[in-house]
Design a protein around this nucleic acid. Structure first.
Length: 386
DNA sequence: AACAGAATCAACCGCAGAGCA
DNA sequence: TTGCTCTGCGGTTGATTCTGT
């Protein structure tokens, strides 16, 4: 005998959620925590099925969700992860904790797929129109393939690149996995994005944050996390820029050949796309090439390592997000390189943090909100989802 | 200003795996 | 072991918004 049916199909409301429904759902989850979705509609009186409630919560109401424009960093991470994991949006989303799988999926389908297709057409102008047969799950793969299929030498080069990428990215992923895993149980999840992304709900729930226990600690960690996040993004972006600059001023020992080859790739691309008419396209090519570089992926690993060390630096002993269990596996030479890059950049990270750009108005508002003290323990933050 | 087509994204649908009775 | 529900995921849809004419 199984369980009783989760919800009647009759009388179930569909379509967009109203603010009132959001309020009811958020209030309920505030009191009871997420989970046990089957009981949510009956206990709240919402005429929604449990599935719809869960979806609404995870994709919209859940604290910590960032909405709106994707940063270049996020974009690159999505493309890289998609190439590695395929259309595993939930898995990809786990590396972008502030984004939902739905959001990432939508962004991929509406933006990135087009960009990749466009880039494909740059590589194969004579195939214009035929690339439409490529589906989203393989678009990055075909992109990568484009590099390798045309020129044997480039193929070998790309093979090496992929090895480098996978090594570095796996490192990045494994360290991030532990980070994500531990942050799930930590109490330092930022509440900033929640306020910024669902301000309507936040207003509806005014007083929630201000009456919940533990807010002081959270506010500290929130403030610091905001800074940390800014730093992380800056570092990675700077890293990418640096890596591009390093094409001309190679500073990574052992990368000379790769850099030379990359320039060769670039030249070939230029020849192939000689009919393309504007800087936009060449910029796109640069952009996508940067996605394929070892340095790019390396920087992700560096960024991850930095962020963990940064986190301890910034959080100090008070609100450290989670002891980042750095895996101490035997490292390959490539990983050694990644490590050395990371270490050498560590100091720069701290400096970066000290040179934070001024907070935006919203951030300021949020900081004020956070330092208004208020914060106590948010029931949400103890939930496994966060 | 009005319309059409394109773009966006919240929400739905159906499936699969895990867990429970 | 079986049959059922719950939960999560990926693909798709359709309403809304944006943009160009």
């Amino acid at each position: 005998m199984g369980r009783p049916p989760c919800c009647d199909k009759v009388g179930i409301k569909k379509g967009p959620w109203t603010p009132e429904e959001d309020l009811i759902l958020a209030s309920y989850i505030k009191d009871h925590g997420p989970g046990n979705w089957r009981s949510v509609p009956t206990n709240t009186g919402l005429l929604r099925c449990s599935k719809s409630c869960r979806l609404r919560w995870t994709n919209y109401l859940r604290p910590g969700i960032k909405r709106g424009n994707f940063t270049e960093l996020e974009e690159k991470m999505i493309i890289s992860l998609q190439s590695l994991l395929g259309n595993k949006w939930a898995a990809i989303a786990s590396y972008l904790p502030q984004r939902t799988d739905n959001d990432i999926k939508n962004y991929w389908n509406t933006h990135l797929k087009k960009k990749l297709k466009k880039f494909h057409s740059i590589l194969h102008p004579h195939h214009l129109g035929s690339s439409s047969s490529s589906d989203s799950s393989t678009s990055f793969q075909f992109l990568s393939k484009d590099y390798s299929s045309s020129y044997d030498r480039i193929r070998n080069l790309e093979h090496h690149h992929l090895i480098h990428q996978n090594s570095a990215l796996n490192k990045f992923i494994s360290s991030h996995r532990s980070s994500v895993g531990s942050s799930n149980t930590s109490s330092t999840t930022s509440t900033i994005s929640y306020a910024s992304s669902t301000e309507n709900i936040s207003r509806l729930l005014e007083g929630w944050m201000k009456t919940s226990p533990n807010k002081l600690n959270t506010s500290n960690s929130t403030t610091l996390k905001l800074k940390a996040t800014q730093t992380e993004e800056k570092v990675l972006l700077d890293g990418n820029n640096n890596s591009k600059n390093n094409n001309h001023n190679t500073s990574h020992s052992g990368n000379n050949n790769l850099d030379d080859d990359k320039q060769l790739v670039k030249k070939v691309e230029v020849q192939e796309s000689c009919n393309d008419d504007d800087d936009l396209i060449s910029n796109e090519a640069d952009y996508f090439e940067s996605l394929l570089t070892f340095e790019n992926i390396s920087n992700m690993a560096c960024w991850e390592q930095k962020s963990s060390s940064d986190s301890t630096t910034i959080h100090g002993s008070t609100t450290s997000a989670s002891p980042e269990p750095q895996t101490t596996t035997t490292t390959t030479p490539i990983e050694d390189r990644v490590d050395s890059i990371s270490e050498s950049d560590h100091q720069g990270l701290i400096e970066d943090d000290q040179n934070q750009p001024p907070f935006s108005l919203l951030e300021k508002w949020l900081l004020d909100e956070a330092t208004g003290q208020v914060l106590e323990e948010d029931p949400m933050e103890t939930s496994p989802i966060f």
